[in-house]
Simulated scan of single mutants.
Amino acid sequence: MQQLTEKYNIELSEKTIVEKLQFIAEQHPGKVVFTSSFGYEDQVITDYIFKNDLDIKVVTLDTGRLFPETYKVYLSTLERYKKNIKAYFPPTKEMEELLDKKGPFSFYESLENRKECCFIRKVIPLKRALEGNEIWVTGLRASQSNNRSEMQEFEFDGGNAIIKYNPLKDWSLEETIEYVKANNVPYNILHDKGFVSIGCQPCTRAIQPGEDFRAGRWWWEQGSGKECGLHEVK
């Protein structure tokens, strides 16, 4: 698969995003999945997929702690495109054990606890969503954080044994917003209130002018890399 990522990076470099999405859907029929959290970036990709009726599954990870506004854009997206978005949830047993042992806000107490919560609520459902697929489409942009600055458009995710395609890798936040507005794509209204990266409600806040893009995620942590484990840091 590593060789295939290198091949795709070279051979598809001149194609448009829609052409690349169409290509991977044709080359990997029924085995391409896109994970959406309904942020600006994900809504752009959802629009590309649904508007062009591409054979790419769109799924979301419902952690059980999402903002009401996130559910609203989820519903707006279903109503707009009349397409299915499959939800994956945390495993009941592990979730119950975590709450029984550590309570509902253990993630504030230590980095270890926070990563444990993220693992149960996000990583385990992600593994289920990716199972049986060959290409994972994401909404990652290189400028979102230092951890993502060196990523490739196509890259091999060894942890999940899957090829990851990052179509918006070189897009700026401004370009992303411009696409959403120009195409009247449903978006999370929290973006209008300073939330640039939106995750679970207890773990996300708006950022202030001049703050880093990821400053609003796990805002009480310092030097943690501000990642939840969904995307392997190289």
Rank of each mutant, 00 (worst) to 15 (best):
E155N: 12
R121D: 03
H28M: 06
P104Q: 14
L98N: 07
E6M: 07
E134A: 13
N183F: 11
E41V: 08
P91V: 09
L61D: 02
V59R: 02
S197Q: 05
K51G: 14
V137Y: 01
T35Q: 02
H231T: 08
T63S: 15
T92Q: 14
N146G: 06
L98C: 10
I198W: 01
I10C: 06
G30P: 08
L12E: 01
L126W: 09
E19S: 13
T138Q: 03
Y108V: 09
G39D: 11
Y165G: 02
G199K: 00
E97A: 15
E227F: 07
K7E: 14
L4F: 11
N166P: 08
K226V: 03
I163T: 05
T176Y: 05
I135E: 11
N133D: 01
Y48F: 11
S110K: 05
W219K: 13
Q27S: 15
M1H: 12
L66K: 06
P90S: 12
K226G: 01
K82F: 13
E41Q: 15
F34R: 03
V33P: 02
V185G: 00
T204C: 02
A206I: 09
M151N: 04
N160C: 10
P186A: 02
S37Q: 03
I163E: 09
W136D: 02
K51N: 14
E174C: 08
R128C: 09
P209H: 01
T204Q: 09
P167L: 09
K57A: 08
K20L: 06
G229D: 04
N147A: 14
Y48L: 13
K115P: 00
M95L: 12
V137S: 02
N113A: 05
I135K: 01
R217G: 00
L173C: 07
T60L: 01
G229T: 03
I120S: 01
Y165T: 04
D170F: 08
H191N: 12
I24D: 02
A25I: 09
Y48C: 08
D192I: 10
I135W: 03
N133H: 15
H28A: 06
E131P: 07
T60I: 03
Q222W: 00
L61C: 02
W220Y: 15
P209R: 01
K83V: 07
L140G: 06
T60N: 07
E96S: 14
S106P: 09
G158F: 04
L12W: 12
K83T: 00
F34T: 10
D170G: 11
N84W: 09
N184I: 10
Q152E: 15
K86T: 09
R217S: 06
G210N: 06
K83D: 05
E79R: 13
L99E: 15
F156N: 10
I198N: 08
A129W: 07
Q43V: 10
V137T: 05
N133C: 08
R65F: 13
F38A: 04
F23W: 15
I198H: 01
E116F: 07
A215C: 05
Y40A: 14
E19W: 04
I120A: 03
V233Q: 08
G194F: 03
R205K: 14
V18A: 10
F89I: 08
T35L: 06
E227A: 10
I85E: 01
T77F: 02
D100A: 15
K193W: 03
C200H: 05
T204V: 08
C200D: 06
V44Y: 06
P104K: 12
S37G: 11
M1L: 11
A25P: 11
